[in-house]
Design a binder for these strands. Structure first.
Lengths: 225, 225
DNA sequence: TCCATAAATGACTATTTAGTCATTTGTGAC
DNA sequence: GTCACAAATGACTAAATAGTCATTTATGGA
């Protein structure tokens, strides 16, 4: 059985009714190896940055042979792309947790945003660092840029989707929403990134409360100007 | 004449009265070469990122031999450190332009901050991208991290120095100022970085006015909470 | 003009890293 | 047990990059 085949039969085949074969031991072994690689790569990327990381470092960390890496991923940027997608999924998942509560006020939503970002930053610090590597946020002319940028676009769109209902009745001004989403994302990511070099961890934690207040007020201004 | 010697006699010797030798043609030639390398490296770093850049790319871009690079810098991170220092100096210089105007209100200062950052972002985009590469903002475990972080600390301190007078009479709460500086820096850098992937250039420009309003209000809240 | 010294050069070697593949190990059907 | 095939391996080759140094070019003083 080839890895490609396994993927097709087990995970992405949920449109037509297919008898769900329970994963065989071989399949579980491959999945476990794959996850080991993903975890090791995340750690290495967050320590050294994607460009400075090497395949050898990843496989050594995962305690696997080098050839194994190429059995599962085509290169560094392949696995990095997957990790970025995964991290954005986590973050977007948190953002959605509150979604279709029709009683939520704008301030509730904004507060929820901040909490979600903060929780993500606290509990998935490696993923935060990965996402925040400048190469991924700025348009550096690297290979596979598209794959790296797509998840960020998805993330901005998620923020936009949740804020749009509060933007008033007149037809939605796309630039205005996008600006808002950039402000939200930029503020939160930017604050934490500077806080990491400028503050002690406990000080970052105590910064959240006052941050939230003015953050919410400031965004309301954006919306109602 | 060696480069080390030249450096010592001409630039860093301003404590004791030394007859200012006008730069010789040889010295000017070396300085010009050095600048060519700095410019080329800035361009390459901002296109590819520091880690993905190579010495060959830098010297080719500068139209110089490879050996020349090693005559002026010890490696990639050496020249990157110098460029970061240089960029922070530019940015801090802009921040200082308004400094000792005793009539300036807090809102004047904050507005000036935003303008200064925006002007820097607009006119020194390569330097902005260099500064914003995650490796420099987050504590990636790389060589010469210290040299990379020191300029950012200087930048945060500059913001703190300018904002401290507005923090009220009671003894200054260091954490509070630091938090404020992180918020300023994070918001501005973060916004532009997300705007770069999420917005068209002209939309970024028109975002500045509304951004300024709520930014200033939001920071006032930080200060007066 | 000629000499002494600094600056620049780029072909070269050394080193690091990517990527391959013949071989070994694990799994499952019979 | 044994056969067939997938997964994992790591020694290997190929490629990219760092860093060196004998040589050439430019500069300034005598």
């Amino acid at each position: 059985m080839d890895i490609e085949v396994q993927k097709r039969t087990n995970s992405t085949d949920n449109q037509v009714s297919v008898e769900e074969t329970p994963p065989s031991r071989t399949e579980k072994r491959a999945a476990k190896t794959r996850n080991k690689l993903l975890n090791a790569a995340l750690a290495v990327f967050s320590e050294l940055g994607v460009d400075a990381a090497t395949i050898d470092l990843i496989t050594e960390r995962a305690d696997l042979g080098k050839g194994t890496f190429y059995r599962h991923f085509s290169d560094k940027y392949d696995i990095a792309g997957e990790l970025v997608e995964q991290a954005i999924d986590h973050l977007v998942g948190r953002l959605r947790e509150m979604e279709d509560d029709p009683m939520a006020s704008l301030e509730d939503v904004l507060e929820h945003f901040l909490n979600a970002h903060y929780a993500f930053f606290r509990h998935h610090q490696d993923e935060f660092v990965l996402l925040f590597q400048g190469r991924l946020l700025l348009k550096l002319e690297r290979q596979s840029t598209e794959r790296m940028e797509a998840p960020f676009a998805q993330y901005l769109e998620e923020i936009e989707a949740q804020l749009t209902p509060y933007l008033g009745e007149r037809k939605v001004d796309l630039v205005r929403v996008r600006r808002l989403a950039c402000a939200v994302a930029g503020f939160v990511f930017g604050f934490f990134s500077f806080a990491m070099i400028g503050m002690e961890p406990e000080d970052i934690a105590t910064s959240i409360k006052p941050l939230r207040q003015s953050f919410v007020k400031s965004l309301s201004l954006f919306l109602t100007q």
